[in-house]
């Protein structure tokens, strides 16, 4: 078991965080998803299973979350990288979540900083535009990625390089009740994602489908793919019946 990480691992993970956010600013969410970045971090630090678990737990927390209109949400990408890296030093899933969850929340502050600092670049671009300086404008736009990327890369680099060892020591020293509490937290947190998702759905109108899904899995022990197929058929049937009802009325 390692006690800490070399500067090279820290550097690679910092670059991973940088690429994750900057890719998300353009062609989208391939890397930034906690599951994807978690498993890549797992490969780098040599514990793929941990990366899968941490990524999955954070993904379940984020089910109903989306950056609506550019709003800030918890940074589960950075959380997944840090949680997987720290947990792989020996603390496992519990230690990983103890790091990943607070990190995801604290990173929102740096997200706001990154979005605010980029304002400088558009002001400079205004000046270059006034002069018709296309090279200047291009430079300002392309450099706009720096505040975004560095607000993720620097904390990851420093935390993994200098912090992972000490954090692991602290976690080792934590009492049993704390680690048990974190373990229960891990099993409970998907409730947040489900609740956020349900909050966007017309639960009052369509609660019956929720109950059917629950009964199919919990009582009838249907595998989840089976539940999905019944859901597919149920939705088709409902819309068809309602369509014919509407035609009969008109």
């Amino acid at each position: 078991m390692m006690a800490s990480y070399s500067i090279w691992i820290a550097l690679v993970l910092g670059i991973l965080a940088y690429l994750g956010i900057v890719l998300n600013l353009g062609p989208g969410l391939w890397l930034q998803e906690a599951l994807v970045v978690g498993v890549i971090t797992g490969l780098i630090v040599g514990n793929v299973h941990l990366g899968l678990t941490i990524g999955a737990t954070l993904t379940l927390m984020s089910l109903g979350m989306w950056t609506y209109g550019g709003a800030t949400m918890p940074d589960f990408m950075t959380g997944a990288i840090l949680g997987t890296a720290v947990g792989a030093l020996g603390g496992g899933e519990t230690a990983g979540l103890a790091v990943a969850i607070p990190a995801s929340i604290l990173m929102t502050q740096l997200d706001v900083l990154g979005r605010a600092v980029t304002t400088v670049f558009i002001h400079a671009a205004d000046k270059y535009t006034e002069r018709g300086d296309i090279r200047g404008v291009t430079l300002m736009h392309l450099l706009g990625q720096l505040p975004w990327g560095l607000t993720r890369a620097i904390p990851v680099f420093i935390a993994v390089w200098l912090g992972a060892g000490p954090i692991q020591h602290i976690i080792n020293a934590l009492p049993h009740w704390f680690m048990h509490g974190m373990q229960v937290t891990g099993t409970m947190l998907p409730a947040l994602g489900f609740a956020l998702l349900l909050n966007q759905m017309p639960v009052k109108k369509h609660w019956a489908f929720l109950v059917i899904g629950y009964v199919l899995y919990a009582y009838l022990k249907l595998p989840i793919i089976g539940v999905a197929l019944v859901a597919l058929a149920g939705a088709a049937l409902y819309l068809k019946l309602r369509g014919s009802e509407a035609r009969a009325e008109s």
């Binding site: 409730a191 759905m201 489908f209 109950v211 199919l216 899995y217 919990a218 249907l222 149920g234 939705a235």
Partner: peptide
């Protein structure tokens, strides 16, 4: 509407499964 109904039923099954 179609996706909502599908989603509600699947979530109903996923709550007991994942947790």
């Amino acid at each position: 509407e179609w996706a909502t109904i599908f989603g509600m039923m699947v979530v109903g099954g996923f709550v007991p499964s994942i947790m």
